[in-house]
Design a protein around this nucleic acid. Structure first.
Lengths: 229, 229
DNA sequence: CTACCGTTTAAACAGCTGTTTGAATCGCGT
DNA sequence: ACGCGATTCAAACAGCTGTTTAAACGGTAG
């Protein structure tokens, strides 16, 4: 067995175990047993448990991005079709149909309970994604929408998607199995989120309400600044 | 000190600690130290660590429901104003403005990593809330929308709200502090979620697209059933 | 063959965990 | 004041944790 083999084996089995049981409940003995290596191997290759965990989280992110890359668009792809592709990609990353979907579970754990990899994860993995999303939203809104409004809408899209992955248990307890199988798979959910978002944006454009709201916010802020001065 | 005192003290300090550090990382020694009681008190009053945890989770739910009860409506309150009140209540429960907001953090932990209290929590705490929400959505949609569609929209509302509480770290890393202070407090977020949802529902009503989609889904299903027969 | 270095191994380590114990203490009705 | 049950306490328990150690192993260059 070469150096690469043992290291890779550990990294491979560590991900799903950490995802299932969490950092604290996972013992390096269990990981090493699953990988077929000695307990000391983790400290030999990774230094300590925490650094193995961080490596496992980053590995999970790499696997997801490799398996579900951002869609490629031509110049002629309309903005709402781009939005649709983006939402489908994001939801597929969250709920891989066939696989045990452990990767995103592990990443969500790290986000909720940061331990060193969180900042890098968000800044390198999530930020580019979010920037593309907000650009699309801006294109689908009338001119005059403010940045905070666009950010809020961006998180509305992300929030809808993440919910199904992070809190699947709630859906399972609330929705009958037949309905779940038919309407709560990755593709159905992505289509729903896309239509829901597109509809809200269309209504914003039609009524220009978002621009009026942006102007009102601006006026409020100016008033507040005067008050302070 | 009477029986009620020690028990209550433990329960009171256990909630925030469990919320911050999680079940595994929290030691009963730390809880007892904070409560000013002996280590054996937990086992004496609660049996073991897990039953204390479950009690703490239920206690958190009670506190939230007591502090932010469902809004009272008169017969004349229009459906969209009811929706607004419901969203504001839910977001306030998620992000208590002044307090350390530990209650919902603890509950979200239990949902993500169920340990005995999760089922009861969802069925008794969340289900009634969700039912009110879906009834309102139905009233705000044209006749003919299917149950699965209404459920999906319901989770879209919940998902938007929960995201800010469960993944606040992401928002913190993505949004500048000045913008956060101004546009990402509980009330601003609740207003945004309400407007976003109302807009989507209005567009659904205006175009009748949701009814057409429901009919199409129905046709698909009939076709599939014939295929099986 | 030999010497060497990266790797693997079993064993031991110190520290912390939840839980139990049995005695000490307290509060209160008699 | 007494006695009794409920409560509190310090101490100990057994078990598991991450980590370290020093010896053994294995392939490979000289």
């Amino acid at each position: 067995m070469t150096r690469a083999d043992s290291r890779a084996h550990i990294l491979q089995v560590a991900g799903p175990i950490f995802a299932k049981d969490g950092y604290q409940s996972t013992t390096i003995r269990r990981i090493c047993e699953a990988a077929g290596v000695n307990v000391a191997a983790v400290n030999y290759y990774f230094g300590d448990k925490e650094r193995l965990y961080i490596e496992a989280v980053k590995h999970a992110r790499d696997l997801l991005e490799e398996r579900w890359p951002l869609p490629k668009w031509t110049e002629s792809t309309p903005a709402d079709e781009r939005l649709r592709g983006l939402i489908h990609t994001f939801i597929r990353r969250l709920i891989s149909p066939a696989q045990g979907e452990w990767q995103m579970k592990l990443i969500l754990r790290e986000i909720i309970e940061p331990s060193g990899a969180a900042r890098e994860l968000v800044q390198e993995g999530f930020a580019p994604f979010f920037n593309v999303l907000t650009e699309l939203i801006q294109q689908l809104l009338p001119c005059g929408a403010s940045d905070p409004q666009i950010h809020q809408i961006g998180f509305s899209v992300i929030g809808q998607c993440v919910f199904y992955a992070a809190h699947q248990q709630v859906v399972d307890l609330m929705i009958e199995e037949v309905e779940r199988a038919e309407h709560f798979d990755a593709d159905s959910l992505a289509e729903h989120v896309w239509r829901f978002t597109k509809s809200a944006l269309a209504e914003y454009s039609r009524t220009d309400s978002i621009v009026n709201r942006a102007k009102a916010d601006n006026a409020d802020q100016l008033l507040k600044q005067e008050h302070q001065a």
